[in-house]
Write a protein that binds this DNA or RNA. Structure first.
Lengths: 334, 334
DNA sequence: TTATATATGCTCACAATGAGTATATTTAGG
DNA sequence: CCTAAATATACTCATTGTGAGCATATATAA
């Protein structure tokens, strides 16, 4: 009776760290399945309800076993009923997997991890890194392809309306016309590109692309991942970029002692944006998020910076704030 | 091999509407299980991965079947590996249920629903409604009980530290001392009360309460629910209260045409707070969220108000904003 | 010594926000 | 008809938060 309802729960973790001013994600280079040979995967483990009382306990357990990494902050992202969206063929027949995505932060230890490796997350999302200005891939590839897609015949009857909606989606997601870039829309952008058939995952799942072509003619925007793993990663990015602004999660990625500029660099790496330096300091200090250690940084290159540490007490004072920052338009004061 | 990993997915929906200025939740009065006789439950349905491609489709499907309600906005909340927290005894032996909680909004049709009924959500959370000022239950019952709990012997070794943390949690959650009340902390408050053993669910799960008593001696704060359903509802409240401030979801609960004051009343009902009327109008109008219909409200009692409708176009203009509002301290201008 | 690079302090204009006052338009009741 | 009460709506004002830039301090390299 329950046979067709029984499923296996898979836990996927987007484990994030920042080192050398780059946000990195732990990936398993390429998995057994041949259908997606060479495509990276997020670390994955099944949930065993007998052994682990909660999903998070189960997650921490196998991550610990497999990677020896100690996770700091852990947050549930989303539960998907269909792993690879429309292509369930890769599952074992008769077995249904529901996957629960998690975001986890860890301080970057560059240990060698058996089977897994740290990879710059912008390799999967080259359009998300605006620290050096607008990524050329947007104007060179993405926007033209999306325009084509938006102008295409739609399946649904209200022809003009559908086109207009597609155009609006593009404008809002990629900051065309005078719309501002919103770093938190990473997931929406991924989904838009997927809908438009511009990602290899979409081709894999049999969606027509912008030129109405399927399969190998799909454009290749960013590195693909197995199943819906790139989507999970996009969810993680969106969530983390949002969260950093109202909760002090950035400190989970910092060493015990750091300079304000190092903190800023970490935040910028995650947001993929530049931040106004003086205002960033003002914000961090006024919010009472840090306290001076007295020690100075011995780095070379200019006046030494003071080292700070995270003020854990903020968590008990006000409802601990985050780093509400705005991108700095000019690159002058970087 | 997979036998111990196989689980059944349960979908729980917190279906919310607002009518007569009261936020209401659809509940199933009392379920079959006798262990929790008389405790309300959220509508529940199993997920069948063969019949439905995604979790949300599955959810919409059985809600439609069972209630004939048409859901507008639907959002996934959280996935729990343990339904009743520590008490899994109520599950059928050998069957594990992972439940996925959903928030759904619907315009309040007061149809008679077979087996289900609309219930004011503040009956489950009497401390969350501050529209008539601070609810007396807080100072009369909650804070004293929490103080007792905070002062209690802790199990963990660092005695003083644990007490301090409990006191801080209480302060931040319930706005003791000079901490401001935060309407979005509904979930944190529920979890705090649960931890402190002040809810019947906690007693059911065998947690000691503030006086170190278990079972029937537990205080009764708000109406309890089956399994972890009240927790899911608290999650829904927190999420909705947060979301309303940056996404135009409130309109999902409004009729096609409404006055600004009706909109305000709906928002206030959800937030459990009073809002400054003039500033509310300014906000809603400046954000371009509404447009005039020209028609006037024929209600009695004073100058007629103009009817507005939701401006769907905002969704395509800017990244559609919500109703960023602050509680008004004085009740003067309500 | 000077150029350069970074850190840090400070100012200023402007927008957003909280709160209040003033006025308009209705009904209820004499 | 007049007035009080109730509600709707317009406008003002002080305060705060935020974006941006200038100025100064302290290091290293040539």
């Amino acid at each position: 009776m329950h046979a067709d309802k029984a499923v296996v729960i898979g836990l996927n973790a987007a484990i994030v760290t920042v080192s050398d001013d780059q946000p990195k994600i732990l990936v398993v280079p390429h998995e057994e399945t041949d259908g997606a040979s060479g495509w990276d995967a997020l670390p994955f483990g099944p949930f065993n309800p007998v052994r682990h009382r909660t999903l998070e306990i189960g997650l921490r357990s196998w991550v610990q076993e497999q990677t020896q990494l100690e996770l700091g902050y852990v947050e549930q992202l989303y539960t998907f009923g269909d792993r690879g969206r429309h292509s369930l063929e890769t599952d074992a027949p008769g077995e249904h997997v529901v996957s629960v995505g998690y975001l986890a932060l860890t301080r970057g230890y560059d240990e060698t991890l058996k089977g897994a490796a740290w990879c710059d997350w912008y390799r999967y999302f080259p359009w998300e890194d605006w620290r050096e200005g607008k990524p050329p891939i947007i104007d060179q590839a993405i926007v033209p392809l999306l325009r084509e897609w938006a102008g295409r015949q739609s399946e649904a009857p209200p022809e003009e309306l559908a086109r207009g909606k597609r155009r609006d989606r593009m404008r809002l997601c990629f900051g065309v016309d005078d719309v501002a870039w919103d770093d938190e829309k990473a997931l929406e952008r991924y989904e838009l590109l997927y809908s438009a058939g511009l990602l290899l995952e979409a081709a894999r799942d049999g969606r027509p692309n912008a030129r109405g072509l399927t399969g190998k003619h799909a454009p290749n925007l960013g590195r693909p991942m197995q199943f819906d793993h790139r989507r999970i990663l996009a969810t993680a990015m969106s969530r983390l970029r949002a969260k950093i602004k109202y909760r002090p999660v950035a400190f989970e990625l910092m060493p015990p002692s750091f300079t304000l500029y190092e903190l800023q660099k970490t935040v910028e790496a995650l947001l993929g944006l530049h931040v106004h330096k003086q205002n960033f300091r003002r914000l961090v200090e006024n919010a009472g998020l840090v306290e001076r250690t007295g020690r100075m940084s011995t780095r070379t290159g200019g006046r030494p910076a003071e080292q700070f540490r995270f003020r854990r007490e903020v968590l008990n004072e006000r409802p601990a704030p985050g780093l509400k920052l705005a991108p700095s338009r000019s690159r002058a004061n970087s």
